[in-house]
Amino acid sequence: MPLIDHPLGGYRFLPGIAPYSCGVISAPGFEIVHVTLHRPAPYRRGFEVIGRHLASEGRPKAALCGIELRSPCPFSFGGFAEFNAGYARILEEWGLFVEGVNPVARTNVAPEVDPPGEPVLYGFSYSRPCDPLLPATIVVAGAGELPEGVLGAEGIVRAGDTSPEGIAVKATFVMNLMEHRLRGLGRDWSTVTAIDIYTIHPIGRLLPEVILGRVGEAGAHGIRWYYSRPPIDGIEYEMDLRGVRTELRIG
């Protein structure tokens, strides 16, 4: 799919499925800023936090281009669809959709230890003006071992296989998907500043070849491993990426 311009957002996006886009890249003269909430907020109230922050930066709601959520536990596919419907209504109320297409990238995972009691907002990304000579910045949405555009149990790669070999196959599939999204945004691993992995399965054996061996100079920034499950029951391994200059922590 070709990149789509957000007419008011200061970014372009790679279309995905109804709940989220596959990723975003800043438009010329803008950068994407990544924000982490020191204390995650219930996700509906979290949008109030986002609104206040954007207002303080002089940015419109349309500048919001990335959302990171944490859930109490993985959803069933049906439960995930129900949650996504409510989430999408908020984005629509904010006027973020572009000709009916959701432009906002998203990651939603379930911490295995001390999970929240309800879905919470952990972080978000937005665009703001910058020196037009600076390179573009990006956010790649989270994805697990499901083919692009598929949201059904029949698509899970090596479904039910949590052996070391099975997890390696899943991780390789997700790495390929991340690279595909990077290319879709017109970028490559050299532009990535943060690589996040979400799984409860050991990743030590994956690091040399499956992950670090493929990311090149991006490996200098390390890997963040969140001991969390992907958002849907039956999916075992998820990643997301970003390449930004500005990281903020609020709250």
Rank of each mutant, 00 (worst) to 15 (best):
Val169Glu: 11
Gly10Lys: 01
Ala88Thr: 03
Gly95Ser: 08
Pro40Gly: 02
Glu179Ala: 12
Glu209Cys: 14
Cys65Phe: 01
Leu8Ala: 06
Leu207Trp: 00
Phe83Gln: 02
Pro42Glu: 05
Phe13Ile: 10
Ser163Phe: 11
Asn84Glu: 07
Tyr227Pro: 10
Gly66Val: 04
Met239Cys: 14
His221Ala: 15
Pro15Leu: 02
Thr246Asn: 14
Ala171Trp: 03
Arg128Lys: 15
Val49Cys: 09
Val120His: 02
Asn102Met: 15
Phe80Ile: 09
Val33Thr: 14
Asp114Cys: 05
Met175Val: 07
Arg245Lys: 12
Thr137Glu: 12
Leu8Arg: 07
Val192His: 11
Glu238Met: 04
Gly149Phe: 04
Pro116Lys: 00
Phe75Asn: 01
Val139Gln: 14
Arg12Tyr: 02
Thr191Ser: 15
Gly166Glu: 09
Pro147Asn: 05
Pro2Phe: 04
Pro135Gly: 10
Gly219Leu: 02
Ile4Gln: 03
Val109Leu: 12
Glu68His: 10
Trp225Lys: 07
Gly166Cys: 12
Lys61Cys: 10
Arg229Leu: 12
Pro7Met: 11
Leu185Val: 13
Leu133Lys: 13
Cys130Glu: 14
Pro119Trp: 03
Arg224His: 14
Leu3Asp: 09
Asp188Glu: 15
Leu91Arg: 00
Leu241Glu: 03
Thr199Asp: 07
Gly58Phe: 11
Leu96Cys: 09
Ala62Ile: 00
Gly149Asn: 02
Ile223Trp: 01
Arg128Gly: 06
Gly58Tyr: 03
Gly86His: 13
Ile250Tyr: 05
Tyr126Asp: 14
Asp161Trp: 07
Glu68Ile: 01
Glu92Tyr: 08
Val109Phe: 11
Ile90Asn: 05
Val192Thr: 09
Arg59Ala: 07
Ser56Arg: 11
Leu207Ile: 13
Asn102Ser: 13
Ser76Trp: 12
Glu238Asn: 13
Gly51Gln: 05
Pro72Val: 08
Phe77Cys: 06
Leu14Trp: 05
Leu54Arg: 01
Ala220Leu: 11
Phe124Trp: 05
Val210Met: 00
Glu93Pro: 06
Gly95Thr: 00
Gly16Thr: 00
Ile223Glu: 10
Phe47Ala: 02
Gly166Arg: 13
Pro60Tyr: 10
Thr162Met: 12
Thr137Leu: 06
Tyr126Ala: 03
Ala159Met: 13
Glu48Asn: 08
Ile67Trp: 02
Lys170Met: 06
Gly100Gln: 04
Asp240Pro: 10
Gly23Arg: 02
Gly9Met: 05
